[in-house]
């Protein structure tokens, strides 16, 4: 057996080991995150931008980790029913209306996981169960 083939084999085995070692939690996160990226492109990106940068004082950026953390339980409601009234993001006031988005609970969980872990945000996985629970208590 040539050295090249042998080293290839070792590499493959190593990769298998690494993926096997990934926890279920991590896999769940990756599934939510990658599906969330697609939901984001289809439903959020036009307004909030590919980099979550928003648009001047019209549309808020999605990179205010403190706001996201504070409003974690209300975020599913904001996505599902839209958002009216004035909010403060990164010290700036935004007062325009966000339209409602007719997404399923799992899509909301996916897109929140994506947003919560992109644009310098670091939240954990936001799963379907917690979204469903929070949706039940929307105002």
């Amino acid at each position: 057996m040539s050295w090249k083939l042998a080293s290839c084999l070792i590499a493959v085995v190593a990769i298998l080991f690494i993926t096997a070692c990934q926890s279920d939690e991590n896999l769940e996160f990756k599934r939510y995150y990658s599906s969330g990226a697609l939901v984001y492109q289809q439903h959020c990106q036009n307004c909030h931008g590919a980099g979550g940068e928003g648009l001047s004082a019209l549309i808020p950026p999605l990179s205010d980790s403190i706001y996201l953390r504070k409003n974690l339980t209300a975020l599913p409601c904001y996505i599902k029913n839209g958002l009216k009234g004035s909010i403060t993001i990164k010290g700036k006031t935004f007062e325009d209306v966000m339209p409602a988005n007719d997404l399923s609970p799992v899509e909301i969980a996916q897109v929140l996981t994506y947003i919560g872990n992109s644009f310098d945000n670091k939240l954990s996985t936001i799963d379907e169960q917690s979204v469903q629970k929070n949706l039940a208590s929307c105002h």
Partner: peptide
């Protein structure tokens, strides 16, 4: 406009 206008004006 909820669709293409924000991206146009960005």
């Amino acid at each position: 406009c909820p669709s293409i206008c924000p991206i146009m004006h960005r």
